[in-house]
Write a protein that binds this DNA or RNA. Structure first.
Lengths: 125, 125
DNA sequence: ATCATATATATGTAGTATACATATATAGTT
DNA sequence: AACTATATATGTATACTACATATATATGAT
């Protein structure tokens, strides 16, 4: 449970769940929040975010309700569920592993680049 | 250049290039080396590795040659090229960004989990 | 009133990546 | 000759990403 949902690449779901835990939100604003924490080059596509949110709702990890209060177009507000917290725990384990792998990669890349003079050349050249 | 090849998910290419920089190798042995540095749950499929190596060769990032010396079946030995080093530099930038995003994710997840008592419950409960 | 723009939620689709299954050939062992 | 291990692949369904387009409502300008 929780972990059998975790598959490679689906980190849009992970970030969505985490930010919805911090605060329930609607798609477009969540999009700004996600892209606010992601670096350039990893920015999320709004269409894919809407799809990810619907998928999360289908599998019960979030619930949504229309919000017609206030001004502007109606917004669908998403909030995380108990199942969503389970899924999120699975994501944290998955992402922790990936970060370890990336640490290994970057450590070894730097070591090789330095021994090859590449980094020295770019830093001091 | 270098960076326009970097696309999400293709980290098999990144790890292959890095390990081939450390040492030229053939597919099956490279497979063992990659899985040796990757944690459980991120293990690489051998079929996908062979495909990744052919793709790398098509775009000029590695070169291969048959090795019929020694005992056993003939092996196709791959070695990284100058273009491969360029591609690898792009990967290191991409992976560095992803690690930052993962750092943010894990930091915030832990903070939320602690404030929610989840981690405390699992550690001391 | 009407036109343009912004907000908000979607769908269409091509290319790529991943997981899991299967195929083919050669070499070594009994 | 049969069996097993090594080595290199291909087949394929599903999923993810990027980029384009569609639809509806609300707001502001003229």
């Amino acid at each position: 449970m929780s972990n059998d949902r975790v598959r490679p690449g689906r980190h849009l779901a992970a970030f969505s769940l985490l930010l919805l835990w911090e605060m329930p939100d609607h798609g477009l604003h969540l999009h700004r929040r996600i892209n606010g924490v992601l670096p350039d080059g990893l920015q999320v596509d709004i269409g894919n975010l809407y799809r990810a949110l619907r998928d999360l709702e289908v599998r019960g990890s979030v619930q949504s309700a229309w919000d017609t209060e206030g001004s502007g177009s109606a917004r669908r507000i998403y909030r995380i569920t108990a199942d969503g917290h389970d899924e999120l725990r699975g994501w944290s384990e998955d992402i922790s592993k990936r970060r370890s792998a990336f640490d290994w990669f970057l450590g070894h890349w730097q070591a090789l680049a330095e021994s090859d003079g590449n980094v020295e050349a770019r830093l001091h050249g």
